[in-house]
């Protein structure tokens, strides 16, 4: 934006500032007009539904035939009862633990692996090989979780599962190991499945960022005698640092809302203590029991935690790396 407006010495500050804003505004009116639909979209789908939060403080009963006003306000108000119930439920802490654990593991693996993979791909000089590798690695992204879960369970099966057969053939184990029945393996299996499915896809954005790094930098480094590893360390990684930081901050904001598909599809009763996540809990105790207020309370909790995480991550990164999204 600085580039468009150009730099001018500020003279009469306050007055000047607002008139400059309007001038910029006029200059960029097409940009503003282009962003307008999305602003409306965000407003309609993210801000308007916020009035639904009132449900968290009610004992909400659906009244589809009543007038809109009655539907919202002619309800029994119960204050913080729903939250009280939420915070005194042991199950809630269990699912919160699982959610945070799996998010953290997913967050770390979901950053490290794609970045490493992108850096490696970036170093490949054979274009044909690079393209093929990229395509194959991001294909699983388009496969639905139902199918992925089926593949994972079949691979880890004790009944002719590929992984067990391989380990037996190598002589590492004597009899098939029940991966899916062990609680301590569950988080790892989910994370690994996620990495397999999403690595290629997540790589794309880093590769795009790397493509933006000027080749002059590499040339200069090479003249100075920098090895490949040195180039990666001093040019490639710093070049994509702001991309990494922004993605990281946003992911941290989403730590508590990780969905439930993979956990739901991969879990079974034996590992349920480690597989239940917050979204599934909200679905079971909120929607399935028609207890919409309780479901909303969980959602409110989710959002509040999300905002706190987002701001703290943003603040921390601002301090350390001078990069932030706000």
């Amino acid at each position: 934006m600085e580039a468009v407006t150009g730099k001018k010495e500020p003279k009469e500050r306050g007055n000047r500032k607002s008139s400059r804003f309007w001038r910029t505004f006029l200059q960029q009116k097409y940009l503003y007009m282009m962003s307008l639909p999305f602003v409306i979209w965000v407003f309609v789908f993210s801000y308007v539904p916020l009035w639904g939060w009132t449900m968290a403080f009610q004992k909400y009963k659906p009244m589809p035939t009543a007038s809109l006003w009655d539907r919202v306000f002619d309800q029994k108000w119960v204050g913080f009862d729903q939250f009280q119930r939420l915070f005194t439920d042991d199950q809630f802490y269990l699912v919160l633990r699982n959610t945070l654990a799996m998010s953290f593991m997913g967050l770390i693996a979901g950053f490290v692996v794609p970045i490493v993979f992108a850096v490696l791909l970036n170093e490949v000089k054979n274009i044909a090989f690079k393209r093929v590798a990229q395509t194959i690695s991001y294909l699983p992204h388009f496969v639905s979780w139902v199918v992925v879960a089926g593949i994972v369970i079949k691979m880890l099966s004790t009944d002719n599962g590929a992984v067990n057969d391989l380990l037996m053939w190598l002589g590492i184990i004597d009899e098939p190991y029940q991966f899916m029945a062990k609680e301590k393996w569950f988080w790892g299996i989910v994370t690994a499945a996620d990495v397999w499915k999403e690595t290629g896809w997540n790589t794309i954005i880093y590769l795009a960022a790397m493509a933006g790094i000027s080749s002059e930098l590499y040339e200069a480094a090479r003249v100075d005698g920098a090895s490949r590893l040195r180039q990666i360390w001093h040019i490639t990684l710093p070049g994509i640092r702001s991309t990494i930081v922004i993605l990281l901050i946003m992911s941290i904001g989403h730590l508590v809302s990780i969905g439930f598909e993979k956990q739901f599809l991969l879990s079974n009763n034996l590992v349920s203590d480690y597989a239940q996540v917050l979204d599934l809990y909200a679905l079971q105790y909120g929607l399935q029991m028609s207890n919409f207020s309780y479901g909303t309370a969980i959602n409110v909790f989710n959002s509040v935690v999300g905002i706190i995480l987002l701001f703290s991550a943003n603040g921390i990164f601002k301090k350390i790396t001078k990069e932030s999204i706000m």
């Binding site: 079949k154 099966s157 004790t158 009944d159 029940q178």
Partner: peptide, 16 residues
Amino acid sequence: LDKESFVQKYDQYKAK
């Protein structure tokens, strides 16, 4: 008792 009894999904059971 089949070891996979509590791990298998319905379609795997039917396939078995």
